[in-house]
Design a binder for these strands. Structure first.
Lengths: 248, 248
DNA sequence: CGGGAAGTTGAAGAGCGTCAAAAGTAGTGG
DNA sequence: CCACTACTTTTGACGCTCTTCAACTTCCCG
């Protein structure tokens, strides 16, 4: 008799909330130990392979998710295939807030992923009894809203160099907030995904990276790692102040 | 002895919540009459003139607002003056959700405006005792998030014609939801503001409107009213399916 | 080690921005 | 009520940034 599921995630010690890596940063951080235990009862830990689709835009929103480990992308498509990535999610991020019972976007695993999955009806029933959980979700939604508005500024008004600059600064800051180094920054997405996030093409992304590299602002360490050599100039480039830095 | 404030808004009958035009559509809709009365106690009705600034990005977020009547724009600026409008608000819309104690955007009156203003600390104290209010705010925030993602798709991946098409469809739908006609649609913003919303220039907006007019999709009735003659083709233009409609 | 995906680089072109000027609109005060 | 002014909108000519298309190189995984 062998176990039903070969993956270590299902109800094995590593899946326990108490030892979860994102216990103190994810939404669950607001819950007391006993509440956490109740939440764990309605949860399933689900593994996803790189490239696998987690949810699809327009689909009935039956589940909510929390990322335990790995990275994911959220995106929307036009009928002819044009793609806009609306966000990247990392460990601790919440996923699946629905607009009128349907998901507003599709989501896909960028790397091997481990998710906590909650049936929406049961999660919502749980949340209604815990105002602090809803409050936390509100805070999260507002933060995402602020990020979305920043991204609108980027997509509507920034040049290609400014977009790449902003993107690298953002990656660096988020890594730091997750306790990782802020300089050789991990870039788990492909050039095409960066392009779809920044409203550019793969070619332009590649050209701009080359330019930043040549001008000594960054160093490219393999396809998925970038070292930020001159954070000051990178930040200046991000906000459209190229050549205006220096004078105090 | 004359009244302290000449404007009819302050504590006069027209400012009463029971008779408020947005009583059933705004956030307050979830409140029972007695709760509404409590909320009214911490509220001030404030008039704004067209063009007046309501709040500024980065400022301490001391107030929350609800639009009783009129329209407003939310926007972000780059250091060199480039502007991205992140949203337009109309009667019933909520305004002022803060990211880390500061406003994430600036807001300005598009037309003569009447707002309900709440001190944030008192409003939040009130909200904590009323989970259904927080739940409603969460719903609102999620809806705005979905709208923001749609706008990212527009800014990152749509052509000028598609942007204008989407914009007009959106205006039309929102007007209908507020109980106004969906065809001669009111456009309270200037061409420059439309441009700053769609990531274009005034000139491009003007040219595209001319093109839609010439092709018989819309008719321009003065600067601030547009009739939608062919909703089907407008919708097709909005989603990048120009010339693909027809075959069933 | 080989094949396919991902990334880079080049040349040409389209779409939108910029600059400039004219036409239309609205608000103001005589 | 009308003329004056200032702003908004429209239209045209031109240029630049980014896209498109294509070829080539590098990286990765079986």
């Amino acid at each position: 008799m062998r176990p039903k599921c070969a993956h270590p995630a299902h109800d094995c010690p590593s899946a326990a909330c108490e030892t979860c890596e994102v216990r103190d940063t994810a939404t669950c951080a607001v819950l007391a130990p006993d509440e956490l235990e109740q939440l764990a009862d309605i949860r399933t830990v689900v593994p996803y392979a790189k490239g696998q689709t987690i949810l699809r835009e327009g689909e009935r929103a039956d589940f909510l998710f929390n990322i335990r480990a790995g990275a994911a992308k959220l995106y929307k498509l036009l009928p002819d295939g044009r793609c806009q990535i609306t966000g990247f999610l990392f460990a601790g991020d919440f996923l699946g807030l629905a607009h009128q019972d349907s998901y507003a976007y599709s989501a896909e695993a960028l790397s091997t992923l481990e998710l906590c999955r909650f049936p929406r009806d049961r999660f919502e029933a749980f949340a209604i009894r815990l105002p602090k959980l809803e409050h936390r979700l509100l805070t999260t939604a507002v933060d995402e809203l602020a990020a979305a508005q920043e991204q609108m500024l980027l997509l509507g008004r920034k040049s290609a160099v400014e977009r790449l600059g902003s993107f690298l600064v953002q990656l660096s800051r988020r890594a730091a907030r997750r306790g990782q180094p802020d300089s050789p920054v991990e870039v788990p997405m492909t050039r095409a995904e960066i392009a779809d996030y920044l409203g550019l093409t793969t070619e332009t992304v590649s050209r701009v990276i080359t330019r930043l590299k040549t001008s000594g602002v960054i160093r490219v360490l393999g396809q998925h790692r970038i070292a930020i050599l001159d954070p000051r100039r990178l930040l200046a480039a991000a906000e459209g102040m190229a050549g205006e830095e220096g004078r105090p």
